[in-house]
Computed example of a mutant assay.
Amino acid sequence: MRLEATAKEDQYKIWMTDSELKQLERVAANQRDYLIIRLGGRVGLRAFEIPQICPKHVKRTDDGEHYRLRVPEGKDTTGNGGKPRDAYLPKDVEGDIHRFQNAEDIGRNQPLVDLTERGVRNVVKRTATRAAEETGDEDFRHVSSHDLRRRFAQRLLVDRQMNPRVVMAVGGWDSFQAIEPYLNAPTPEVVNQAFEEAELS
Rank of each mutant, 00 (worst) to 15 (best):
A153N: 11
D86G: 09
F140M: 07
S175L: 09
Q154I: 11
H66G: 08
Y182A: 03
Q52T: 14
V167L: 05
V58W: 00
S175Q: 00
C54Y: 03
I50R: 01
P51A: 01
R108A: 13
H66A: 11
E9S: 11
D147W: 07
A29N: 09
E73R: 07
G44P: 05
G82L: 10
A132I: 07
N109L: 12
R160Q: 14
V143Q: 13
V93D: 01
R60M: 12
T6W: 03
R126Y: 03
R85W: 04
N30Q: 03
G82D: 04
L3Y: 11
R126I: 06
P51C: 02
D33L: 03
D63V: 14
K56L: 08
D86V: 00
P164T: 13
R149V: 14
L21G: 15
V27I: 10
P181N: 04
T127R: 00
L200R: 14
V71K: 00
A28K: 06
W15Q: 05
M162L: 07
I106F: 09
P188Y: 08
T61A: 14
D147K: 06
R149L: 05
R151Q: 12
Q101R: 15
P188V: 06
F195H: 08
V120A: 03
T6H: 05
K8M: 05
N184T: 00
E117N: 08
I97Y: 01
Y12V: 00
H57G: 00
D159Q: 10
A7I: 15
R155Q: 07
Q161K: 08
E117W: 04
Q177G: 13
G107A: 15
E4R: 11
M1H: 14
S19C: 03
D10V: 00
I37L: 05
Q52K: 05
R121G: 08
A47R: 09
R99T: 08
N192S: 14
C54F: 00
V158D: 02
E104N: 15
Q154L: 09
V123W: 00
K22E: 10
D114N: 15
R60N: 01
A128G: 12
G136A: 10
I50T: 06
M16N: 03
V191I: 14
K8Y: 13
Y182W: 11
T129C: 12
E134Q: 15
V43N: 01
D10L: 12
L115Y: 15
E197T: 15
G64N: 06
V191Y: 04
L183R: 02
H57W: 04
L21D: 09
I106K: 04
I14E: 12
